[in-house]
Amino acid sequence: MSEFVYTAVVSILQLLVVLLLAPLATGIIRKTKARLQNRRGASVVQPYYDLTKLFKKEVVLPSTASWIFRFTPYIVFGSTLAIALLVPTIATPVPFHWIGDIITVIYLFAVGRFFVALAGLDTGTAFGGLGSSREMSLASIIEPAMMLAVFTVAVTAGSTDLSIIVSRLSFTPVSIIHPSHLLAFVGLFIVTIAETGRIPVDNPATHLELTMIHEAMILEYSGRYLACIEWASQMKLFVFMALIANMFMPLGIATSFSFVALAIGLGAFIVKVSILAILVALVESSNAKLRLFRVPELLMVAFVLSLLALILYFIIGS
C-alpha cells in the first residue's frame, strides 16, 4: 500500500513541480535580466499570465499546413512532460525511473525537436524552413555533447539510470569532485544555453529573421498551440536545470519518503534552480549573440570538452 502511495504521490509531485514551476524559472530569468539592464521588468509570475491568456485565444492555422502542424504542439508537450517523470527533481529515486534512462531522456528531447522542425517545414514559408534547418544542424552537435557530458557522470555513478545516479551521488557527494566532472559541467552548461535557445546561441525575445532559430520554426503558431509549445520549452529549460542541479549538486534531495524530507527536497531544489536561473541570466546579459556560423564553434567547445571528460574518466578512472 505504501508502495502505491509513494509511487502516486512522488510521480504527481514530480509532474506538478515541473509543470508549475517551469514558468517561474523563466520569470526569474527575465526579471534578473531586466534588473541587470536597469529595468524593472515584468513580475516573475508574468509567464503564467501569458500562458493562460494564450490558452484562451483562438488558433489561426496556416492554410498550407497539414495534420503534422496540428499534432506537433501536443507531441512536444507530452514528450517533454514524460521527461519530467524520469528526471529527479525533489526526490530520488523517482517511482517510474525504470521506464527510461538518460539515453531515453535525450532521445525524448529529440522527438520534440524532430516534430517542431517538421512543423516549421509544414507551413511552407521560408522562415519555417530556415528555423528547422538551423535547429537541426545545431542539434547535431548539441545532442552528442550533452550525451557525453551526462555519460561521464553516469559512468562515475556506474549506472545510466538517472535516479540511481542521483541517489548514489547524494550518498557519496565526494565522488562528484572529479576533474572530468568539471569538464562535463562546462560542456553541459554550454549545451543548456544552446539547447534552450538562450543568448549567445539564440535569442528567445527576438523575431529578427537573421538571428532566429527556435522562434522561426514556431512563427506560425498561435493561441493554444503556441501555449503548448511555449510551456514545453519552459519545461525543457527547467528540466535541463534540474539535470545540472541534481547531477552536480545533489545535496538536499529527498532520499526517503517523508513529509519533512520532501519539503527539504523542494526547498533545496528551488534554491538550486534559482541560482542556475540567475547564472543563465548573467550569461545572457554579459554576452552578445554570436553570428550563426560562430555558434558551431562554441558548441564544438562543449563537444570536445564533454568528449575529453568521458575519455579522461575512462583513462584516469576514479
Partner: peptide, 9 residues
C-alpha cells in the same frame, strides 16, 4: 587535479 583541468579548459 581539478585546478589542472580548469587550466586545460
Amino acid at each position: 587535479e581539478i585546478l589542472a583541468v580548469a587550466i586545460l579548459v
